[in-house]
Design a protein around this nucleic acid. Sequence first.
DNA 1: ACCTGAACACCGTTCAAGT
DNA 2: ACCTGAACACCGTTCAAGT
Lengths: 274, 274
Amino acid sequence: MATPSGKPARLSPKPGVSANKISQRLLASTSPKRGSQNAPIKQKDKTAGQNEALSKVRIVDAAIEQIDRNGLMGFSLRDVARTLGVYPAAVYWHVPTRDALLAAVVESTMEDVAPPLGKGTWQDWFRELFSRYRKAVKRHPNVAQLVGAQLVSNGSLSPQMIDRILSMLVSAGCDESKIVEMYNVVVATMVGFVTLEYASLPSDDPANWAAQLQEKTHAIRALEFPTLARHLPAMANKAFIVRWQSGTDAPMDSSFVAFIEVAIAGMEQVLSRQ
Amino acid sequence: MATPSGKPARLSPKPGVSANKISQRLLASTSPKRGSQNAPIKQKDKTAGQNEALSKVRIVDAAIEQIDRNGLMGFSLRDVARTLGVYPAAVYWHVPTRDALLAAVVESTMEDVAPPLGKGTWQDWFRELFSRYRKAVKRHPNVAQLVGAQLVSNGSLSPQMIDRILSMLVSAGCDESKIVEMYNVVVATMVGFVTLEYASLPSDDPANWAAQLQEKTHAIRALEFPTLARHLPAMANKAFIVRWQSGTDAPMDSSFVAFIEVAIAGMEQVLSRQ
DNA sequence: ACCTGAACACCGTTCAAGT
DNA sequence: ACCTGAACACCGTTCAAGT
């Protein structure tokens, strides 16, 4: 009845979902999958509007739509092709690989995060930058993981954003010798919290998973971990590691604010010390 | 010759690698894959040592080894089974799913990150925590993405670490009403930078990819982005978004130090204000 | 209790051939 | 130039059956 892994050996038959890879489930949220067979279904009716010429933008849009609906887990080139009514190979004419497509998705998601170089304080500018980034991710939360992984080293290289961050650091009085370090601090701050906040849950079966995690939570020995035990009620589903919903369903607004205030206060401090 | 996506329509035949999913390539580093067929190759010789009874720990260890060698991309249940000389289904007796296995990998990677509650300052304790976390990730860099995604909301719930972080915050004078927020700040700080630093590169062909990115970099219009242009030499391969190696090959030590100093200075500031 | 052997329903990618 | 149609080499997962 119970396997060594402590779970029932097999649950319900689980029909079409099956297969997949890497962070897939880890990063995923939910997703059905009504599988059609092989050949694409050409829909000639105007209602669907699926018969304009295929193009990279149409493909990227379809990909985003699919990721929004089904999570990263629900994403596959073949499915995108299916919803566009073409063969998978057709997609390959416009996009060299699956991951190039995902890179394009990231790029599209990240348009216009960097605020213009107005006349406020540098502190306010960075606050605005961080908030805008978060809003951009919020619009397509299931893309969050991609962004985190991609933004680091990627063709989604937005020179404008980089230039503005550097300019702002200069006008914040950052020493030229420290500017690369501080730039990295800014980017890590921008991306770090939000990536975690919107990291999606591992399970196919969120309800069950939440229940299990709550179990585990209640099983914590109050004597061994008194501080944790004391704060548990306040932390439940509101603190990293002790939550069972992602930022989509349980936003962490106040913690985000705290995070950026810490970051900015820290930057003030470090910049004034140099 | 050139497709709309601006890349050659098809490169070299690309033999066995093929297929895969999600962040796969995004998170991956490199990986061959010498494919055996279907049935596992039983090796009865002692040298390989592959004939002890199958068990969850052996499976997890094999998984880690494989991820270290081939990247997350090179990871598959079937491959793990292959190296253990058993059928894929055998693995399923010990581990309920692929992602449960990856969760176990994370858990194993994250052992003992939280330092004991010694007698130093709270500042030093957090410095130590952040450094230990980074070292743990460094040991198995290809697991970094998993950790980032998992640690947030996961069965890798380590009550001890949480308890210690909370205790430290209390003794740092953190107001009880702000403790959850500050805890989240700490976790995001711990995980954020390092996850980005070790995020792996998208390409199957890192050399080519690096070249392309350098091209793109040189193509930046100096007139349009003067600050960026000025600092480009200092940033190349050392700054997020403008690098073509991951933390494994190009560690970002000084930026990491700057990051945690900013974080700690910020925490001092915020804690003293409340 | 633990594993084999085979099957199922998917993948990403390639490639000749059509239009 | 753009897409079809089919194939190739993989996946994760299930399930009866063996031992």
